[in-house]
Computed example of a mutant assay.
Amino acid sequence: MSPVNAAHGRSEDTSAVHPTGERPHGERRSLRRVVGAYAALAKPRVIELLLVTTIPAMFLAGRQIPSPWLVLATLVGGTMAAGSANALNCVIDADIDKVMNRTKRRPLVKDSVPRRGALIFGLVMGVASAAVLYLTVNLLSAILAIATILFYIFVYTLGLKRRTSQNVVWGGAAGCMPVVIGWAAVTGTVQWPAFVMFGVIFFWTPPHTWALGMKYRDDYERAGVPMLPVVATAQHVARQIVIYSWVMVAWTLLLLPVTSWLYGTFAILAGGWFLFYAHSLQAAVRRGEETKPMALFHRSNTYLMIVFVALAVDSAIGLPTLGLPF
């Protein structure tokens, strides 16, 4: 009973429906919080990055703008698959998330979502993703989506993450699969350019993730996750970032036979730009200066977007391919 109503000797039933028939604002806010909490389980910001690579892969597969319906169906199915893997990852890693400042606001840590509810949500999303892809795209894309979920959960989350500093190197393969799914959605097959795109993201993942690990090293150490920045010196981590960055940039050039000068130009310029910052980070570590690994982390996102957007534009325009022999 509020002080005002108590003074007048009456109470107010705050659960009553408004005379107009509408739900009280509190109930609507509560519903939004629940929906938002389940959406957060899917880690939408991670999914955004995956979609940035899926669409260009579809453009390259047909060397033209693909059917908008096919793109939409593939993105919906792919988003659900990624959401499933991320939600199940949250269930398994709830104990880790509780002790890391970076993840302590996730729904299971804040008890915004019950553990059982999160598990059911993840499983249903996974089954639904396969159904959507099978019914609207093709069988191969559905199989690849399910394989990706299983790999992410059993190989990376349960197998590698807590056991080896190479966790993100091999476990990162799950994040490379959207380009393969996108290619399969258009062609019904998996051909060598899809594996090249897979490799670009595969070699991109360690510099991207290790830069984040350098920033949150104490978090990972407290959680008992042996990320490379936890078990190795900063000098070693910076050197590995540079090595993987060079391999990544070189790997992007393997797509030159099926692209034009436009993609090649952006791949080389963006690669040089990213390598400059990777070497700058290494130089700062060598000199013992204060480093800003998050700057490289954010630039890695920009770099990947530039390369794949260039790939999409190049394919949409349909310029003559270079067809270089290797």
Rank of each mutant, 00 (worst) to 15 (best):
E27T: 12
R116Q: 14
Y303C: 08
W251F: 13
V225G: 00
D218V: 04
W204L: 01
G26T: 11
V200C: 13
F203Y: 11
R29P: 00
L281Y: 11
G271L: 03
A6L: 15
L212S: 07
S280G: 08
A87T: 13
P207Q: 09
G213E: 00
A267W: 07
F326G: 02
R222W: 01
W204T: 08
A250C: 08
A82C: 09
I120S: 09
A185H: 04
G9R: 11
L135D: 09
A142L: 08
L51M: 15
D219R: 12
L70F: 03
M227G: 04
S2F: 12
A232M: 10
E221W: 08
L133M: 08
L135W: 12
D219K: 08
T53G: 13
E289C: 01
E22M: 11
V225T: 13
L255D: 02
A316W: 10
G83T: 09
L51F: 14
L75W: 13
V169S: 02
H25M: 13
F202Q: 03
W251L: 15
N5H: 15
G26V: 04
H298Y: 14
A118L: 01
T53H: 06
A174D: 01
A250D: 06
P24C: 01
W192M: 07
T259L: 05
G318L: 12
A147L: 15
K110C: 03
I65F: 07
M125G: 04
I306Q: 03
T53I: 08
V127E: 12
L41P: 01
G188P: 00
F198H: 07
D314F: 04
V169M: 05
G213A: 15
L31S: 11
A39I: 12
R286E: 15
K110F: 04
D97I: 04
A184H: 01
I181Y: 05
P24S: 03
T302Q: 15
L150E: 05
S15H: 14
A295E: 09
V71I: 14
I120Q: 11
G288E: 09
T14D: 07
S280R: 14
R10D: 06
L255I: 04
T53M: 13
H18N: 15
N5P: 02
L228R: 08
A185M: 01
V99H: 07
S112D: 15
V76A: 14
V230Q: 00
A6G: 11
A7D: 09
V285Y: 02
L150K: 02
A211M: 09
L123F: 13
L256S: 13
H18Y: 05
P107W: 01
Y134V: 01
R217V: 10
M177I: 13
W204D: 10
T302F: 10
L41N: 00
T74M: 13
L324K: 04
P44Y: 10
V242Q: 03
Y277S: 07
H25V: 11
K292F: 04
Y220E: 12
H8F: 13
T53K: 06
L212D: 06
A85R: 07
D314L: 05
T74Y: 11
T79V: 06
R162L: 09
K43D: 03
Y244T: 07
A232R: 15
